[in-house]
């Protein structure tokens, strides 16, 4: 076992883990933050995307120990528990950017990271290219793309 400490959604957490523990397992099974999903478990589908130190990563291909000392943001931490939805979440709701919802947490976290890197004005081609690492098996990309474009605009003026 090895000791691991990190900040998750603003809260400090510490645990003893088997070194094999993936960041996504740590989030889901140790912290019970089950909003982050495991889809393919092979770093292709993006259902497990979280932000590690402000950057989108695939938590199924990151050891919890690699995130030691870091700061993790998951879908649960995007909006305050009692507050309104994050603008990107609101845009997914407004534009019906989901069907079954399985890929949605990863889509939203990727979208927020996309805004950080590419700004608030995202054209369709950019969004589709940037979604390379996020798969939706309901083939709902059309509304996801619309949601991200709207969410990006709505995020103008805020940090994340």
């Amino acid at each position: 076992m090895a000791a691991v400490s990190m900040t998750v959604n603003g809260k400090a957490v510490t645990a003893d883990v088997d070194p094999r523990t993936l960041l996504v397992q740590f989030l889901r099974e140790h912290l019970r933050l089950t909003g982050t999903h495991v889809g393919c478990d092979t770093s292709q589908c993006g259902a497990c995307v979280v932000h590690l130190n402000g950057i989108a990563v695939k938590s199924c291909t990151t050891l919890a120990l690699q995130a030691d000392g870091g700061s993790v943001l998951t879908i649960e931490g995007l909006a305050a528990a009692d507050g309104p939805l994050h603008p990107m979440q609101e845009a997914f709701r407004e534009h019906h950017g989901l069907q079954c919802g399985f890929c949605t947490p990863g889509m939203v976290m990727t979208a927020v990271d996309m805004v950080r890197r590419k700004g608030n004005e995202l054209d369709e081609q950019t969004i589709r290219h940037e979604l390379d690492g996020n798969l939706c098996r309901c083939t709902g990309y059309h509304n996801i793309v619309k949601a991200i474009a709207a969410g990006a605009k709505a995020m103008k003026g805020r940090a994340a």
């Binding site: 770093s43 995307v49 989108a56 990563v57 990727t110 996309m114 390379d132 690492g133 996020n134």
Partner: peptide, 9 residues
């Protein structure tokens, strides 16, 4: 290479 999240790591 890969996708944006892969390129981050």
């Amino acid at each position: 290479i890969g996708d944006p999240a892969v390129r981050h790591r």
